[in-house]
Design a protein around this nucleic acid. Structure first.
Length: 277
DNA sequence: GCCCAGGTCAGCC
DNA sequence: GGCTGACATGGG
């Protein structure tokens, strides 16, 4: 059992795991969560300001996954005033640093789907192509296991048009035609551009991977929720690039962090205006 | 039934 | 470069 103390700002585990950045964690309804990191089962709960984990993984790996070394108080201080209401609602919510391959496929699945449906698609994918990891959990499928599938099987899981993208991506990665590891050595702009060479990956999915896996904390995925927030403040903007750049200027150096608070607040609190404008 | 969803793509201009 | 409609399917 590991007891981990976060850097300033504490942790809100329910918000962290339920805010739509990661899709394979399950709540027991009593504050406990179970999920998989690096293929290993993890049980997690918060006790006061600390994170308590039961897992075979070393503490350092858990700290990195939950970004426990981020100084949330310093990050909050960089946000504009109109993000503070969302901060107050989810103080302690942390971005996670999730596996690159899992993140990539998850957000390709997420295109034009709502969050409950994304959970279902990914659960089905893991059950069918992942490995049993104990406690009823299945690991995220490897590129090799997906590359051996066929499109009909994937469509049968309810993936729709996403099936072809996942299959093509798995075959390119498994066949060595696309090197995921090089992304981790790139700066934000290079990684964002390179990711879009993959089928089913446009600027929004690329930004999700940059933010939730590669740690580029100023990346702002402009989805339908973020677009509405941006256009409320800058009605003339149309292109993805323009809206993302506006959001980065508006939200500051940790724009991706701020974006996640606003996104979660907009979706769950039916908030309208977020304290500003 | 309807509209919408953490969009992307091909086919146009 | 920007705009439009198709894409599969389920949630609310």
């Amino acid at each position: 059992m590991l007891t981990l103390s976060p850097n300033r700002g504490g942790i809100d585990l329910a918000a962290t795991l339920g805010c739509g950045q990661v899709f394979q964690w399950y709540s027991d309804g009593a504050g406990g969560w179970r999920g998989i990191v690096d293929g290993a089962p993890v049980r997690a709960r918060q006790e006061g300001g600390a994170l308590v984990c039961d897992s075979p993984l070393p503490a350092g790996r858990i700290r990195a996954y939950f970004r426990l070394d981020d100084n949330l108080e310093a990050i909050y201080a960089s946000f504009p005033d109109d993000a503070q209401q969302a901060v107050a609602a989810f103080r302690g919510m942390r971005l996670v640093q999730q596996d690159l391959w899992e993140c990539l496929l998850s957000f390709v699945c997420a295109t034009n789907a709502n969050i409950p449906r994304i959970h279902k698609m990914i659960a089905a994918l893991c059950r069918r192509y992942g490995d049993e990891a104990g406690e009823g959990l299945y690991s995220f499928p490897t590129a090799a296991s997906l590359a051996a599938a066929n499109e009909g099987d994937l469509r049968a899981l309810g993936l729709g048009y996403r099936a072809a993208h996942l299959l093509a991506m798995a075959r390119r990665v498994d066949g060595g035609l696309f090197d995921l590891s090089e992304l981790t050595r790139m700066d934000y702009a290079s990684a964002h551009a390179r990711l879009q060479a993959l089928p089913g990956v446009g600027p929004k999915v690329a930004d999700c991977v940059c933010l939730f896996s590669l740690g580029h904390l100023r990346a702002v995925p402009v989805d339908t929720w973020v677009r509405r927030m941006v256009q409320r403040r800058a009605p003339g903007l149309r292109s993805y690039r323009a809206m993302a750049e506006f959001a980065q200027a508006w939200l500051g150096p940790y724009a991706g962090y701020a974006q996640q608070y606003l996104f979660h607040y907009e979706r769950t609190q039916a908030g309208w205006g977020c304290g500003g404008q």
